[in-house]
Structure formats: C-alpha cells, structure tokens
C-alpha cells in the first residue's frame, strides 16, 4: 500500500480538471449525432468526441489512482455531483448552431494544442504519456475547427453573421482557460502542469490568425465569467449532467 502525498492529490485534481473538460465537451459533441449539416460532419464530430472521450477516460483513471480512494473512471464520471465537477464553463455551454459549436471548438483546440505539447514534457511520466497521444489528436481538432471557421466566416453573409455571433457568445468564457490558482502554481513549480501564461500567447496568436483569415473580428468584452474549476456551473450544466449520469445511477453497483 503506497501512501498518498500532497503532490498526488494536486495531480489528481489537475487530471480531474482536464478530464472533466474532455468528458463534458465530448458529451456536447455527441449531441450532434445524426443532426449535423452533412454526413461527413457526422463522422468528423463523432471522431472528435471519441478522441475526447479517450482522453477523459485516461485522465479520470489517473486521477482516481493518484487520489487513492479506489474511484475508477466511471465512479468519477457518474457519481460526482455538480459542485464536484470541475470543467471549464466554456465546454459546458449549449451547442447552439453549427457556427457557435465551431467557434467553441476553435477556442478549445487552439488551447489544447499548446497545452498537450507542454504536457509531453511534464515531470509526471503518466501525464506525459497521456499527452503524447492527445497531442496528435488535438492537432486534427484544431485543423477541423480552423477549416470550418474560415469557410463560415468567409462563406456567405448568413454564415459570416452566424459564426461571428457564435464567437461573440462564447468568447467571454475563454478567459477561464488561463486562470491560475495556488494548486496550479505548485504544479507548475514542480514541472507537472503547463503554465497558462505561455499557453495564452500561443492561443491568442492562433485564434487571431484564424479570425483574420475568416474575415471575423475579435470580440471585445469586459465580462469574464469564471468559477468552473471550483465547481460553479451555468444553468445548462445540470441538464447535461442529468443525462450523462441518470442511467448509471439508477442501477447502483452493477456491471455494464
């Protein structure tokens, strides 16, 4: 029996945060199944969801191991209540139309690419191994989002208007991507976690470049909703969690 250290608990929380981001975004993307604009997009969106689900499973499993309380991926995904789920609010927002979904995809993927690149060099070997796989997946996620944002922005008048509206709506939730708290500071100091300050520069450059190519403008806002990392959520989240968890919770302790 190994003893759980303070560092283990910090890593567990960090993995929970990243795992919840992946799980909640996968859940949102799955809502597009058999509802997308064309068959190729059904394949592509489910592909993104499958990658994110794989990341979520690895991260939640690692979180459970480090936490040392015997919780596996399913216990963590299905049996935590809303205040204990610590994803960014950005990923839980309702999909809206395809333009808004792609706007969110761009903001998330432009952050995920430098995040996983940095985590490939994490001093935590297990996290670095997860990053090694994720970094290849999110490169495609960024390409996918970029190509749609550019086509929608520089497509028709209607698509331009819709995708710009999508960016305007999701943009304020992007600030939360780069917040730092004491836990993150401790993990950055140990070389475990990625430093948001460095990520933000890369993110900003990517997003601005894509928006310019798409003939879209960077939204201006002073509003910075926050709180996801401490379990504060939007009203839409309760419905998402209910749908995710109800069947598992209705049959406690069984196998599936």
């Amino acid at each position: 029996m190994t003893t759980t250290t303070e560092v283990d608990l910090d890593v567990a929380t960090y993995c929970l945060r990243l795992g919840d981001d992946a799980l909640v975004l996968a859940q949102r993307l799955c809502e597009w199944a058999a509802r997308s604009p064309q068959l190729e997009e059904d394949v592509a969106l489910l592909n993104l969801a499958l990658d994110l689900l794989g990341q979520a499973r690895s991260l939640l499993t690692l979180a459970g191991v480090r936490e040392g309380r015997g919780r596996d991926e399913d216990a963590l995904a299905f049996l935590r209540d809303e205040p204990d789920v610590v994803n960014l609010q950005l990923v839980e927002l309702e999909n809206g139309d395809f333009g808004r979904t792609m706007a969110r995809q761009l903001l998330v993927a432009a952050y995920a690419v430098p995040l996983w690149q940095a985590l490939c060099a994490s001093t935590d070997a297990d996290l670095a191994a997860i990053a090694g796989k994720a970094v290849k997946e999110v490169a495609y996620h960024l390409d996918h989002a970029r190509s749609w944002v550019v086509r929608l922005g520089d497509g028709t008048e209607e698509s331009h208007r819709r995708v710009q509206a999508g960016f305007d709506e999701v943009w304020p939730y992007g600030f939360e991507l780069f917040e730092v708290d004491p836990l993150l500071e401790r993990l950055i100091a140990r070389g475990v976690a990625a430093d948001p300050a460095a990520l933000q520069q890369v993110w900003r450059a990517t997003v601005e470049e894509v928006l310019a190519e798409a003939t879209l403008v960077v939204p201006e806002t002073g509003w910075r909703p926050t709180g996801g990392r401490s379990g504060a959520h939007t009203e839409a989240f309760g419905y998402l969690l209910a749908e995710l968890q109800h069947l598992h919770r209705s049959h406690p302790g069984v196998s599936w």
Partner: peptide, 16 residues
C-alpha cells in the same frame, strides 16, 4: 430537420 438546419453551412462551404 438536420438537413434543413445545415443548409446554410453547406451553402457557406460551397460559396467559399
């Protein structure tokens, strides 16, 4: 509904 709702997306891709 999926096809109709996605019309503007397909039109945008074609226009681009």
């Amino acid at each position: 509904a999926a096809h109709d709702d996605g019309g503007w997306v397909r039109e945008a891709a074609a226009a681009y």
